[in-house]
């Protein structure tokens, strides 16, 4: 009896004190918020970090890469417009482990996309991939990514053609590199070349996030093309009848369409009064430049 009482009291004390500590910790975490990531950059010198790792710089690079992913993910989730620490995190990661290809490739995607999809820093993305090529000169994927950034984000078609050509002569390269080099040299930034670029990205990537992004770009380009064609059909109808069609049925009866046209996601297009075409769900085609409802703004697509 005499030994049971202290045991019960001490067990209760452990439970109560630990629970209180957890409640306090919860409050502390809530106060700290995003500052946790900022603290990690108090050591911003990759050389110092390399020395502190005692030779395990690969492990430290993996940790910094994970922090970069978490930093991007948390900012992306709240549709942030600024990603100030993304490039420094990626720079530290790749200096700690210059062979961490994934950090160059994904990092460039994170940096290049316009806010809120990414950091909107294509120049820094180019710088990151150029560093990657310097340390991994035989990896054709990096030439592909650099050419992609030059063509799609910077509209530097001559530079892109040269980069694709450099990547085309590497051992174990992808034959599409030569095709892209020729396309950009002759056609510049036309839609067929852009489509080829995104299709190559879709086919050559294992990661679901990158593939999903590429698919949305492909579908958005297809939708833009379809909207252009439909508006041409409507113009021809107006020329023939003297008035705008009231519905797609008018165009079907006139033999100009086979049925109600569908966008690449399978949703029917809407025909607005005055002969304008509009997509029903612009959020499923976030990169469209035509057919979006007035005032629509691109939303952040959740990461898979």
């Amino acid at each position: 009896m005499s030994t049971a009482r202290p045991t019960v009291t001490l067990t209760l004390a452990v439970g109560i004190l630990f629970s209180c500590a957890l409640i306090l910790l919860h409050n502390i975490d809530a106060r700290r918020g995003s500052a946790i990531i900022r603290e990690s950059l108090y050591i911003s010198s990759p050389a110092a970090l390399k020395r502190m790792s005692l030779g395990y710089n690969g492990l430290l690079a993996d940790i910094y890469w994970t922090r970069a992913v978490q930093y991007f993910g948390s900012h992306h989730a709240r549709s942030a417009e600024e990603y100030d620490l993304l490039y420094p995190l990626l720079d530290i990661t790749t200096q700690l482990d210059p062979k961490l290809i994934v950090a160059y490739r994904f990092g460039a995607t994170f940096l290049a996309e316009r806010p809120p999809m990414g950091a909107g820093q294509p120049e820094k993305a180019v710088q990151l991939v150029r560093n990657g090529i310097q340390h991994n000169p035989d990896d054709w994927h990096l030439y592909y990514d650099l050419g992609f950034l030059q063509a799609w984000n910077l509209h530097d078609y001559v530079g892109a053609s040269r980069t694709f050509a450099n990547g085309a002569v590497l051992p174990h390269t992808n034959p599409v590199m030569g095709v892209l080099a020729a396309s950009y040299a002759t056609k510049g930034g036309d839609i067929s070349t852009a489509m080829l670029l995104w299709q190559t990205t879709y086919q050559n990537n294992q990661n679901e996030m990158i593939r999903q992004n590429a698919l949305q770009h492909i579908q958005s380009i297809q939708s833009d093309e379809a909207v252009t064609e439909l508006e041409e059909v409507i113009s021809r109808y107006e020329e023939q009848t003297g008035h705008a069609p009231e519905s797609f049925l008018n165009l079907v009866y006139a033999g100009m369409l086979k049925g109600t046209p569908l966008d690449p996601t399978g949703q029917p297009y809407e025909l607005l009064p005055g002969g304008k075409i509009q997509v029903q769900d612009p959020d499923s085609l976030p990169f469209i430049t035509k057919g979006a409802p007035p005032g629509w703004k691109r939303k952040t697509v959740p990461l898979p």
């Binding site: 492990l59 993996d62 890469w65 994970t66 992913v69 961490l100 994934v102 994904f106 990661n207």
Partner: peptide
């Protein structure tokens, strides 16, 4: 689980 593309590298390094 909370990183991208370096799962094996992380396991081996750690």
């Amino acid at each position: 689980q909370i990183t991208i593309g370096v799962e094996r590298e992380l396991l081996v390094n750690l």
